[in-house]
Design a protein around this nucleic acid. Sequence first.
RNA 1: GCCGCCGUAGCUUAGUAGGUAGAGCACUCGGCUGUUAACCGAGCGGUCGUCGGUUCAAAUCCGACCAGCGGCGCCA
Length: 430
Amino acid sequence: MNSIGEILSGSLTGKQAEIRGWVYRIRSSGSLCFIVVRDSSGIVQAVGSKETLGEARLKELANLTIESSIALNGTVKEDKRSSGGYEIQISDFKIFQRNENYPITKDKGEEFLLDIRHLWLRSREMTSIMKIRSTVFKAFSDFFYNEGYYQTQGPMMVATATEGGSTLFKLDFFGEEISLAQSSQFYLEVMMFSLEKVFTIAPSFRAEKSRTRRHLTEYWHAEAEAAWYGNEDMMRDEERMIEYIIRQVLEKNREDLIFLKRDLSKLENIRAPFPRMRYSELMKKAGDWGLGLKYGDDLGADEERAITVHFDKPVFVTHYPDTLKPTFYHREDPETPGELLCHDLLAPEGYGEIIGGGERIWNLADLEENLKKYNLNPEDYYWYVDLRKYGSVPHSGFGLGLDRVIWWICGLETIRDAIPFPRTIRRTRP
RNA sequence: GCCGCCGUAGCUUAGUAGGUAGAGCACUCGGCUGUUAACCGAGCGGUCGUCGGUUCAAAUCCGACCAGCGGCGCCA
């Protein structure tokens, strides 16, 4: 058995080959039948003739329909008339299943494709995206392994909220009300005390009723936490990680990016270091950039887009005022009180926020004060508070939306196409 | 949570002075010796999202509901 990729590489030219796959296109004309076959490695045209197969067998072949599953035997030839440059002269074939009526035709709407996502995933477009997704997941892990991080896992069923309570998915846990994880951050902070540098790739669940092309209800969250790291140290690992992921995709998925009509030059440009802008600095430039913003205003989606057009690579926005990040674990910058040692990373071309991170409060008194400030019950966070009681150390971390990275790298319209089975506010199937 | 948009055959859609729904693709049958999401001919396929109202008559006008898509907010 051979792969279509082998045929397209030229290594089987003139030889016998057997391929197994699915009918991508089929055309027939009396005594000839052209079948374009796909497998996971590519597509190739095969031709059957009455001369070699006989009338009955040719008719059987010509009678096949889109996405029927088959095995083909034949001689590989170079042929300019075939779109991929190669062609199989069919000498024998086996039909595994002939489809009566495949639902997807050349006319298809967005909603319909989401309803039959389980079949649409077979398309060349989705196949290319899923190959890139595979590379992105591996590259993220490889980068952190190479930097001396350990991979670990937190629970997905939790009793402690990381973000605000309003975005929690409630769950009945044998009578106790708990929820699905919004982040693995607190558990990474625990593991950090033994492993020092840790990362995880896990789903996060947010019950935000977001109706935008950049939100998923269930998304893949790549998070890391590192002991002895300040805000700037963390950003240095992050920018090199982003560069590494993009290099890997450019190297391994060039054909896929081209098929997706991605402008490769936009990705070739992405090299660390990335520019850093303090929030206060950004507010000074806001006037020049036509943003009607003053200190204390949050950056909305429109503002993010307006900022990223001034850069050809991702940009860090740091030192947000504490009023804009109402979470209890961010550490204040002692040099600029009221501003946090935190950062967001905004992807270019209008894709916007892909990372949120920063330095965590590691002093017990500061943490207890903040829990009070945000009306949180310290007992609910007893284990998180304990981390500040016993051998606490300075540390930083971040969370990256892997689906958002894939959305950006592939240059997609909507983040839904960056994940095989998107969960949005109104979609739970397939 | 706020705002906007859409729903006609399996799919993509046409269809208002309100008068019993038309096409392309898919599928089935036939034709074609080099096709590139081929072409030619025939056939199959619709309670016009649901419920109610106005009317002699509703895909079309009105109301409610259901389903989905998008923008903001929030975030990754």
